[in-house]
Design a protein around this nucleic acid. Structure first.
Lengths: 190, 190
DNA sequence: AAAATTACTTACCAGTTAGTAAGTATTGTA
DNA sequence: TACAATACTTACTAACTGGTAAGTAATTTT
């Protein structure tokens, strides 16, 4: 009801992210968000005129966060194994919460997305793949990691294992996901 | 309009599968199906009373097909590499058609599915994983394949690479998917 | 103190969703 | 030839979808 610096917008982004990770982009509505936040659906439209604006906002948040993570990985003091573990930990947390990877979730609905969102999603994916690729390359150079594939291919193999792994885990159980992670690290770390 | 042995039901199953693989389960409607088949939406409801019945029917078809494939794999004359290639080929075909894995697509919407579908989906996943596990185990025993993980874990790693790989390919390009497949085979085949 | 801005609510809407009840034409069966 | 059964169509509905226009109260700026 006022012009105080609002946290509603942040709450909508948070909840939208949670819905996508829990039910999928095309399975939640503005009504779901407004009910949970005890506001009217028009308030959601005030912050995000269309549903595509909300998704764009969520992806932009992710791009920002992964840019920060990539920047923090610039520190040469951190071991490659530790960087890998930081990435894996993010997915482990999702798994424990019964959620799935946002990128993996949105990818399914790719053909239903407007161009503005497709562009952002592609940017986010290349950002993540590029970041992991760099970690792998450096780790190999320093003799901390081992793999025979190109860093690009290995980063795709790793991320598809993690993203689809958490989706599998939601159905076949978390033990399977843990086994996947252990295997990935054992295989990569010298 | 008649009591001839209908192919409408099969057409609905086919189109439903295509929609799930192209747009996702929660992104298509009975209207989409009826329009494309030039029938009324009530005709779709005649064959599949609810949308969950349609999805159940589609998954049942997949269970049937994978049971057949698993049975054909019982033939000890077929090399493990050939069996692997048969599985990979299915995903390559999807990739070329701009579609994604049905299981991968439905997994995203898992929490929005009724119990009857969840049960079937779990059965299908365990069927596929079990089939691949068997191929891997036998291939290793015969000295045709190599891997250090358990067959169960390796089958999950392989299938998550394929399923998420085709989703990635739809965004970053088919070259990436081809590179993934080549790497998987090179790694596994002795 | 007036004007503008922010962050909403109220009240609405057109289109779409899955779904149903009743009727109809065609075909196979007793 | 009567009678089911099949495979639909016609006609409808209640609930929900994303979305908007207009109003309001609190705050910030001028």
């Amino acid at each position: 009801m006022a012009a105080r610096p609002t946290d509603t917008k942040e709450a909508i982004l948070r909840l939208g992210t949670e819905f996508i990770q829990t039910y999928g982009y095309n399975a939640f509505s503005y009504a779901d968000i407004s009910k949970e936040l005890h506001i009217k659906n028009a308030a959601v439209h005030y912050h995000f005129p269309g549903k595509e604006d909300l998704l764009a906002g969520i992806i932009d948040q992710y791009i920002h966060r992964y840019r920060e993570l990539a920047k923090s990985f610039g520190n040469p003091g951190i071991a490659a194994k530790q960087k890998l573990q930081a990435i894996i930990s993010r997915y482990s947390l999702l798994c424990e919460q019964g959620k799935i990877c946002l990128i993996g979730s949105v990818c399914t609905d790719y053909n239903t997305l407007p161009e503005s969102v497709k562009t952002r999603l592609t940017e986010l994916i290349e950002l993540v793949l590029g970041m992991v690729e760099k970690v792998l390359k450096e780790g190999k150079k320093k003799g901390e990691l081992q793999f025979t594939e190109t860093a690009r291919v290995k980063s795709m193999l790793l991320m598809t294992n993690l993203a689809a792994g958490v989706q599998l885990a939601r159905i076949t159980g978390q033990k399977d996901y843990t086994a996947i992670c252990n295997s990935l690290l054992k295989q990569l770390v010298v």
